[in-house]
Design a binder for these strands. Structure first.
Lengths: 216, 216
DNA sequence: ACCTGAACACCGTTCAAGT
DNA sequence: ACCTGAACACCGTTCAAGT
């Protein structure tokens, strides 16, 4: 009884023919373009349809309302971030805690800053409607990947894993968001690249209880 | 050439008589109430005016547009947060670094969680228009207060103060925001109260170079 | 000096008609 | 099966008229 996405946000129908799949892709792409070029207030369904080269009616054949459209775009991007983090976590299993931390932090920053403008646009969109369920799902995926990685640290034992994972994810997501929303100047990004790894490493070290038997 | 607030967001006129001051206060209060009870999509100027007991025309006499109204509400709340942080920073001057850190973190969490519903509502509002200048102004106030405090730590010397302050503020703002936006359950708040101080303390300790001469 | 509320422009959404 | 676009309801904003 928890995660089901409200019906009103479900895509209205699956494209069954090649041309309609193209149409849907064009609409999603047009949404980001309009948001980026014209800004949130100008993000009207008519304008999106026009840029996608279709009529409003066509847009509403695939998305029951404007929110469902934004939801679909947001979902695309968040899943890309989750996938990036999952890969990084898999790659760093069994390594020392500090290496894991750095790997995770850098992967997360990478994922969010490869397309800064798009990321900023998504923060704006995400606030325009209820994204709790989508964010919850993605958060759980990331938490799972992080927890699985942290449990395999080669040098230390990390207690209270759920709590520590939550704090770590909140810090990653929060700081990166603050930087992106405040303009993400080169200076800010540089600080992110140096301080966020330092912060996470220091926190994880403080959260560690006892060094592993072997090479302490 | 930086901080001037755009004219369109300026209150249209100052209330000159007692009754109009009451009107403005009622409109601001009604805005929060409507946002909290009916949600962002139902936050229409007509509805706000109705709840405030005036007509739409009256609302537009004091606020040139809907954004200016939201801007004013946001400004009120952010200034309260800044004031709280400034007080805390003044109180903890000259103390050991760990005490400063805890005092700052707790003051910030206090300020943002005394009225959780209102804080969440504000995050929604802040995304609906350009709040860069307002957020920048408040951020600078908080940075100044934090830097002034951190420079007086009794036990250590903290180098790279601007960078460290920025990272600390981003962490505070970011994590608290993540928690509030994800529902701020008691469990999440408990984790915030325990992990955020630990995180900031660990980071500051790691950022410290050399212990002060006297009592190290 | 302050307030009212009908009127206007515009946006989200629908649906009858087309291919 | 997919697309069109005029039509409808509703919201932000204005302004002539009131006290």
């Amino acid at each position: 009884m928890a995660t089901a996405r409200p019906d009103t946000l479900q895509p209205r129908k699956q494209p069954r023919q090649a041309r309609s799949a193209v149409t849907v892709a064009a609409i999603l792409e047009a949404t980001i373009q309009v948001l980026l070029r014209d800004g949130a207030p100008q993000l009207t369904t008519t304008r999106v349809a026009a840029r996608a080269g279709v009529s409003v009616g066509t847009l509403y054949q695939y998305f029951p309302n404007k929110q469902a459209l934004l939801y679909a775009v947001l979902q695309q991007q968040l899943e890309a971030v989750a996938a990036t983090v999952e890969t990084a976590c898999r790659q760093h299993r069994g390594q020392p805690l500090a290496d894991m931390s750095d790997g995770l932090v850098n992967a997360y920053i990478d994922a969010k800053t490869t397309n800064i403008k798009a990321s900023r646009a998504l923060y704006l969109m995400a606030a325009e409607f209820d994204t709790a369920d989508l964010l919850g799902e993605i958060s759980r995926r990331i938490d799972r990947a992080m927890t699985a990685m942290l449990a395999t640290a080669s040098d230390v034992d990390l207690p209270r894993l759920p709590t520590v994972t939550f704090a770590l994810r909140a810090t990653l997501a929060g700081t990166v968001r603050v930087v992106l929303e405040r303009g993400a100047t080169p200076a800010m990004l540089k600080m992110l690249r140096s301080e966020l790894p330092a912060m996470c490493r220091a926190y994880l070290a403080a959260a560690t209880q006892r060094p592993r038997a072997a090479n302490a």
